[in-house]
């Protein structure tokens, strides 16, 4: 009587064991890699807006400061989305009649705000305040990326909790002088080590890593 299992089953048995080990190690590893991938964090996905607004033109071309449109960023928890009336003064001379501008015209006539799409959004259980960050020397660029180079704005940061904590734990590595907060492509004039330490002292930046800092 021949053996119950033919010789080739030895190879299958070993291969399936190796496969099992690969699966046990590989699946969690793959999942951990996946949650960090831009697809999972929704980074770099351009968000189409009701109007083809190009930040490049406004920031680089016209040298408009972030705060001109995002007016409440230094005072309020939200940065502020410009109302239609912010666009109109400049554009009353140019473009107002163009087809691109149709939504703005409609908004103006109907007296209803433009429906801007949110690009960078945090979950409801996270408390976030723009004013405190800006006033403690966190640049817009640090979280929102090089908006001056984006035709259509996308989410630049992964927005994971670990990403938040990376700065909350070592703020000195990221802060910049308040005057430079809205600068794009900012480069520290002295080593960040020196500047960071000084600013942290000057602005009374604390290492806020308590759960209740953000989850209130």
């Amino acid at each position: 009587m021949p053996a119950l299992f033919p010789p080739w089953t030895n190879v299958v048995a070993r291969a399936s064991l190796i496969a099992a080990v690969v699966l046990v190690v590989g699946v969690p590893a793959a999942l951990m890699a996946w949650v960090r991938a831009p697809n999972a964090t929704r980074r770099y996905e351009p968000v189409a807006q009701p109007i083809a607004f190009d930040h490049r033109v406004h920031v680089v071309g016209e040298h408009i400061d972030c705060r001109y449109c995002h007016f409440s960023v230094e005072r309020s928890s939200t940065a502020g989305i410009p109302p239609t009336s912010t666009c109109v003064p400049c554009h009353s001379q140019t473009l107002l009649g163009s087809s691109t501008f149709a939504p703005v015209r409609r908004s103006m006539e109907a007296n209803t705000p433009l429906q801007w799409k949110r690009v960078t959004s945090l979950p409801g259980f996270v408390y976030f305040n723009h004013a405190i960050h800006v006033n403690k020397g966190v640049g817009c660029e640090s979280c929102h990326g090089r908006v001056d180079q984006m035709a259509t704005v996308y989410q630049a940061a992964p927005l994971t909790m670990g990403w938040c904590l990376s700065c909350h734990r070592y703020p000195a590595a990221f802060v910049r002088p308040r005057a430079e907060v809205t600068a794009m492509g900012y480069a520290p004039r002295q080593p960040q080590r020196v500047i960071g330490a000084r600013l942290v002292r000057e602005y009374h930046v604390r290492r806020l890593t308590n759960c209740t800092t953000c989850h209130r």
């Binding site: 009587m1 053996a3 299992f5």
Partner: peptide
């Protein structure tokens, strides 16, 4: 192990 096949298993 595992080694489902081994020559001794051929013995009746």
């Amino acid at each position: 192990l595992p080694q489902p096949y081994h020559p001794v298993f051929d013995i009746d």
